[in-house]
Design a protein around this nucleic acid. Sequence first.
DNA 1: AGGCGAATTGTAACTAGTTACATAATGTGA
DNA 2: TCACATTATGTAACTAGTTACAATTCGCCT
Lengths: 337, 337
Amino acid sequence: MPANKPKKRANLRDVASKAGVSVATVSRVLNTPDIVQKKTRARVEHAIAALNFHPSAAARAINSGRTRIIGALVPTLDNDIFAQTLDAIEQRLRDFGFSLVVATTAEDPEVEASRAKELIDIGVEGLILSGTSHSSALVALLERTRVQAVAISYFDPTYRYPTIGYDNLDAARLAMDHLVGLGHRRIAVIHSPAAHNDRTRARIHGATTPREDVTTACFEAALSVAGGCAIVDHILRETPLFDAFLCTTDVLAYGVMFELQRRGFNVPGDVSVMGLHDLPSAREMVPRLSTVRLPARQMGRRAAEALAQWVEDDVKPEPQCFACALKDRESTQARRR
Amino acid sequence: MPANKPKKRANLRDVASKAGVSVATVSRVLNTPDIVQKKTRARVEHAIAALNFHPSAAARAINSGRTRIIGALVPTLDNDIFAQTLDAIEQRLRDFGFSLVVATTAEDPEVEASRAKELIDIGVEGLILSGTSHSSALVALLERTRVQAVAISYFDPTYRYPTIGYDNLDAARLAMDHLVGLGHRRIAVIHSPAAHNDRTRARIHGATTPREDVTTACFEAALSVAGGCAIVDHILRETPLFDAFLCTTDVLAYGVMFELQRRGFNVPGDVSVMGLHDLPSAREMVPRLSTVRLPARQMGRRAAEALAQWVEDDVKPEPQCFACALKDRESTQARRR
DNA sequence: AGGCGAATTGTAACTAGTTACATAATGTGA
DNA sequence: TCACATTATGTAACTAGTTACAATTCGCCT
């Protein structure tokens, strides 16, 4: 068989020789078409089409030193806790001409560091991290590569990277204030695994700040609706019913509420349930879930634009704390006398 | 002020001269360290550390012609319909050494085509599409650039790109069979916007295939839990209660069920509700949602590995259809006589 | 017709790596 | 101690673009 054409992708030189012009002219047609004479341009464009030419992003990146890619490291894509934030990030990054690469960390700092390394290896110009619990390897890596990073879902103005988030402790306290204000005294705090998760720890902290006459008991559940169901099952096996359940995330609150209802308890008649996040369905369920609204979309938007501007114009963003808001709905009510 | 150091990122040449070796040696230390003498290697590594050197991904890509990036185009990240699939894709791609770039299309083929263009411009080696409704611009683009693509969430072995999904029509029919088998005769089909969405249309089609004695009425709702609530509100305003609601996605079923319950209807006592997807919380809610399980994770895994192998070894994957399974739970029951 | 300046286009040197091939250094056996 | 094979390293030419600068072309005015 005769050597069949290697069918290699055409490059700029191929186009230039086909069109009978120099590489510079082709490059101009690509980048500043208006400074090229119409006739020449047409010839080049014809050659481009004929050769099926597509410029190589890598070669461009090598010259500009820019990839216009931002990476986001999130614990998991498996539930919708990050959905709205990621959606907002992706859309806002686009406004600035950046693309988003996503990697999941499974809530493990070592995994996170290695994912970060991979992202940097593919050339991301900035990273969006979740929270502030990161391995020293990650910090060293960012230091070394001078890749910019912002941390979301947490607020700590003293942190080495700008944090763009909300006050988790305060959000939980807001929820607890509400429950205590309704007269509840024995409150179960249901939280997701707290290891390596400063956001969860802050929420637990906010929920368990000692208060007169109030007793709290913490229970760790798997971060899923099923996890919320399971922990209720566990609790009811061991303990008399609490006055109220404070869940550090809506996902758990869903499970808790479902399981309580399944067992015949009336929410909020027999027991109040609070969530934290205000996922889209929280206000649609029955009863509508009382929760603390986290500014997920706002935060995503702001983090995206802050990072984009940092990368683009080298203006380090200020840390920013968005307010959380109590959403008093139907899953909580005053304690029965 | 004296010319401050440009602080440019060090490159391979800098490292070479600092270590007193050639660029080839530095490259070897990076890629095949074992063929470099220990002493030399140590010297180079020291220089690398001293200069804070990190190889440029772009320069590597230019040589290998590889970026090891795969792009995924999904309608939205806003709800959790794609969460599990994306999670599975991301994880499986990692096994093959690929990263995932995500872009959202807002269910609009024109937007999709332009996002695809952007992804290809940043150098993705393959694309994961949702369904088979795509603009001719997108098809032409893929043709031109010879970027491989697989389509998920749909099965059509005749489609120009390999489809790795499930039979939407059949899934809906499965649900309808179940409802009809339970004796329901007046059935409302609640679906998300069908424009440009072959998956939704196939489901509607499957749900509305004429059957003796059965009447169906279709209602389009916004794709959200709130959309499901709103459509129930609308329906109850106009029409006597249906025997059953068949929702073409669990997200809508959640809303439908919540709103029915809120209005005092007993599900499934007064009316049955079926979903389609089997999202993680479907089996946890009260009553547990009867639905048809879509193989979201499996499909994501398979799509990722199929595309990875296609890109890597040039073996075009076979279309693949995963089975859907009826999940008969508590939100459906036989029609009251 | 010659000169000037603006508009186009071309040449070649960059960007930051990889790698084929050549060369140098070392080790081993006769 | 020489021959030969290994092993280690260097040189320079690649990859695919961008761009500073030089050269050419063209129109227009005198």
